[in-house]
């Protein structure tokens, strides 16, 4: 019973954290049409940033500034935002597929950087993070439950923030630029500035997810910022419905459930030789889910609404 409960908390925590990242991608892709193929770079920047700023000093590692946790978490978001700002200035002139390739490259470069930079922990990653307020709780279960509430609160805040943003003239502007940048510019809008703003804002949200993820495991390593995570996050958004925040969250829980269930089923029922390839099989499955969804229901389970900006929808 305790086992099931603690597993449920574990599952819901990770799914909630990933939901935040998917919401960030939804701002970029669903609303603005920015094809970010390197989500893990910004997720990773937040994760590494949080542990570096909030961690204890360790031999040979950068950081260990022991900042109060919330400041460290916020700092991780800022670092993700700075990375996005630099990447955005360099790549946002690119269109769709080129932007995807460029950002994918950035993410691979990021992984290589953290893998090879000894001061960032190298392949070992950064360990030994003291989780905030851990001492206040006697049992691990109680602590994890409290941490889940914290994550859930942040998920709800992120969701409300984005819903309000999307319903505003800013959201209207994002979608206009997604639909037809040239027309938007002919109406006095500045697409490059808006694209950069949306790219940074989405990446900061991904950074928040990364910071929470690293906090939850008290650990981050290059294994956590592999391209597969980018694909998973994309699958969650596509299945849920790009352009719809509720869809983004639902898609995350669904795909994460399918992912963990398939991993469990493979480890339980597949022959031993096959189990060696569990990761690869899941990789292929994620590919099928993305392609299948795009063919069968490209708008996702929860399609975007037509009239999003609130005052346009108001009764006349």
């Amino acid at each position: 019973m305790i086992g099931v409960l603690s597993y449920l908390i574990f599952f819901a925590t990770v799914a909630s954290i990933l939901s935040i990242a998917v919401l960030g991608l939804n701002l970029q892709w669903g609303n603005t049409g920015l094809f970010n193929g390197g989500v893990v770079a910004f997720f990773g920047a937040g994760a590494y940033g949080t542990l570096i700023l909030g961690g204890i000093p360790q031999d040979g590692l950068i950081g260990g500034f022991q900042l109060p946790y919330l400041i460290a978490l916020f700092g991780g978001m800022v670092i993700a935002g700075i990375v996005a700002w630099v990447v955005g200035l360099l790549t946002l002139r690119l269109r769709h597929d080129y932007l995807a390739i460029a950002t994918f490259g950035v993410a691979v470069a990021f992984e290589n950087l953290v893998r090879n930079a000894a001061i960032l922990g190298g392949a070992q990653g950064i360990r030994g993070f003291e989780r905030p307020l851990r001492d206040l709780f006697e049992s691990a279960l109680a602590y994890n439950a409290a941490f889940f509430v914290f994550v859930l609160t942040l998920l709800i805040l992120t969701y409300l923030f984005l819903e309000r943003l999307i319903a505003s003239p800013f959201g209207r502007l994002l979608r206009a630029i997604r639909e037809d940048e040239t027309a938007a510019q002919s109406l006095g809008k500045s697409p490059s500035r808006v694209r950069l703003t949306a790219f940074i804002a989405g990446s900061v949200i991904m950074g928040l997810a990364g910071g929470l993820y690293a906090t939850f495991y008290a650990f981050i390593s290059p294994q956590d910022v592999l391209p597969i995570l980018t694909f998973q996050i994309w699958a969650m958004l596509i299945v849920g419905g790009a352009g719809n925040n509720k869809g983004a969250v639902m898609g995350t829980f669904l795909i994460w459930a399918a992912w963990t269930a398939s991993g469990w089923a493979l480890s339980r029922f597949a022959p031993l030789e096959v189990q060696l390839y569990t990761g690869s099989i899941q990789f292929v499955l994620i590919g099928f889910v993305i392609v299948g969804m795009l063919m069968w229901r490209p708008q996702g389970l929860f399609p975007e609404k037509l009239v999003v900006s609130q005052s346009a929808a108001a009764k006349r």
């Binding site: 003239p169 209207r172 502007l173 979608r175 206009a176 639909e179 037809d180 040239t182 027309a183 938007a184 002919s186 109406l187 006095g188 809008k189 975007e304 037509l306 009239v307 999003v308 900006s309 005052s311 346009a312």
Partner: peptide, 16 residues
């Protein structure tokens, strides 16, 4: 014509 296709007619106009 270059409408913002997936936005309502009213939103197209309110954007400007």
């Amino acid at each position: 014509p270059r409408p913002f296709a997936k936005m309502s007619v009213l939103e197209n106009v309110m954007l400007a």
